[in-house]
Design a protein around this nucleic acid. Structure first.
Length: 486
RNA sequence: GGCCCGGUCGUCAAGCGGUUAAGACACCGCCCUUUCACGGCGGGUUCACGAGUUCGAAUCUCGUCCGGGUCACCA
């Protein structure tokens, strides 16, 4: 049997905002295609002209590029089945909608917006009453000729039920009585989302329709459309929703009140695109026969399979994303880390000789986001005001009495150092502790306190001294001595 | 409210009739160590509840409860 080439599509509407749910859908669509050697298509769904946002398609292109999801066909690069922007396909939808009217699967409806609104109850629930479903042919033609505004509606079966198969949820059956005679073509001539999808997915030879599970209940309408046209029904792959945790502990569809929900917001918050992709891949999918969690995009392409997709909604966990981000930072090569950290480092050190390598070495294992850097090392730029109480530390056996002694001895040996380098500082201080017959901590604790003015610092006394440089280091140590009244 | 879907540690999750019910994040403890971090080791009444099928159920069936989704000329 010949195997059909897998074709998936990402079909966002240009709203100017890339929700992580959307991005995950795109990711899975890409992975389903690529894991099977297929094609990933980008189609812009701009059928709602009221919602048009300037520059919104650029946001889509930029996001896909940043996360590395390269499409094989799309508005910007073309392809065999274009155009790939729905507003440019307007005549196609009209043609197919009229076909359905002719075959008796759809009909013209002249009901006004006001009449439709009056059909809903106070909760906004209640659908169309099918008033125009059986209008006499002559009346339809007369009103059409008169130029009366109208839409084309799908004629749903009154009885029976429709069953469809979903690759993750299995067989789902819904009574046809639940199905409304939905609008296919709006009065402005644009298709509705549902109709445009069916027509385009078929015309573009899409094999797997991937979308959020909020579309589960409208899928029978799709099947009915495919059947009315006599088209082959694609594979449905519905994805579990992404939820956010509310303050009271409950969950609901991930939205702004839960934190950043857009790709751009997350990047702004300091998350790396690779980490975001890695994290959302794991939200609702898990590899088979492996407990691997760190995945590059190409590793995902190899490991992904539809049967690893879960059914239940997943809560977006910023903690885990943060951890992953830290993992990505730690995995960076030194020069890569340096390049990425430099903009933040420059906020603290505008000029001057700094031992960048030592600085990077204390930062890389400690940060989870680059934007943490300025707060973390502000003390290097300016010594904070601190209390002499900080010199006391039980575990290091550091006291107010021995601190001045240690400091004095440290200043003396440090001052005599020919070269101000981490190795030299390390060796001399270790030798000093031995000579004084105290544990390392007893010497190093007061030195670090005097050098930093803080009880908790990234890196130890030696790294801090190295970065500070000879002059500033000695100045701070002497200041510490003064503070101790010695 | 009708219909649809879901329910394994706080969170992401493995599990597909027989397991000491994996792993990860978070949390706690210990170790490493000059603080913190990294790293290492260890810890926690997790199968919503109730029936049923079965020698045996987290896994199958039914009911209950809880959560979510959906009912537009929005996507």
């Amino acid at each position: 049997m010949e195997k059909k080439i897998v074709r998936t599509r990402f079909a966002p509407s240009p709203t100017g905002f890339m929700h992580v749910g959307n991005l995950r859908t795109a990711l899975y669509e890409y992975l389903i295609a690529k894991s099977q050697g297929g094609s990933f298509i980008l189609r812009i769904e701009d059928t709602d002209q009221e919602r048009f946002v300037e520059g919104a398609t650029e946001v889509i292109y930029n996001t896909l590029e940043k996360v590395g999801l390269r499409h094989d066909e799309g508005p910007d690069i073309g392809g065999e089945f274009g155009p790939y922007i729905q507003s440019e396909r307007k005549p196609i939808y009209k043609e197919y909608a009229e076909k359905l009217v002719k075959s008796g699967h759809a009909y013209y409806c002249f009901c006004t917006k006001e009449r439709l609104d009056s059909l809903h109850d106070e909760n906004g629930i209640g659908g169309y009453d099918r008033k125009c479903r059986d209008l006499p042919k002559e009346e339809v033609e007369r009103r059409l000729a008169a130029g009366e505004a109208c839409v084309i509606r799908q004629k749903m079966p009154i009885e029976g039920s429709t069953t469809f198969h979903d690759a993750v949820y299995g067989d789902i059956t819904i009574d046809n009585s639940e199905l409304e005679d939905q609008v296919l073509l709006k009065s402005d001539g644009f298709p509705t989302y549902n109709f445009a999808n069916v027509v385009d997915d078929h015309l573009m030879h899409i094999t797997h329709v991937v979308r959020g599970s909020e579309y589960l209940t409208s899928t029978p309408k799709y099947n009915l459309l495919y059947e009315a046209f006599g088209w082959e029904i694609p594979q449905y792959v519905h994805l579990p929703m992404i939820m956010g945790k509310n303050e009271d502990g409950s969950v609901s569809k991930l939205s702004k009140r839960h934190g950043s929900t857009g790709f751009a917001d997350l990047v702004e918050d300091g998350y790396l695109p690779e980490a975001i992709v890695n994290y959302i891949a794991l939200l609702g999918w898990c590899p088979k026969e492996s407990t691997q969690e760190i995945f590059s995009l190409s590793e995902l392409e190899k490991a992904f399979s539809i049967d690893g997709i879960s059914k239940s909604p997943a809560v977006f966990d910023y903690d885990k994303l943060t951890w992953l981000n830290g993992e990505y930072i730690r995995a960076m090569a030194p020069d890569e880390f340096m390049a990425a950290a430099m903009p933040e480092l420059r906020k603290v050190f505008r000029s001057g000789a700094v031992d960048w390598d030592v600085l990077a070495s204390i930062l890389q294992p400690r940060i989870t986001k680059f934007k943490e850097i300025p707060d973390l090392i502000g003390f290097l730029r300016e010594l904070p005001d601190y209390s002499s109480e900080l010199f006391i530390n039980k575990k290091s056996k550091a006291t107010l009495e021995n601190a001045p002694v240690m400091l004095k001895a440290a200043i003396e040996t440090l001052d005599a150092l020919p070269k101000w380098q981490l190795g030299a500082i390390h060796d001399s201080l270790m030798a000093l502790a031995q000579k004084l017959e105290v544990k390392n901590g007893t010497l190093l604790w007061p030195v670090r306190i005097a050098a930093s003015g803080m009880t908790v610092t990234p890196g130890g006394a030696m790294e801090i001294l190295t970065i500070l440089g000879r002059e500033e280091s000695l100045r701070r140590l002497k200041l510490g001595l003064e503070k101790l009244g010695a």
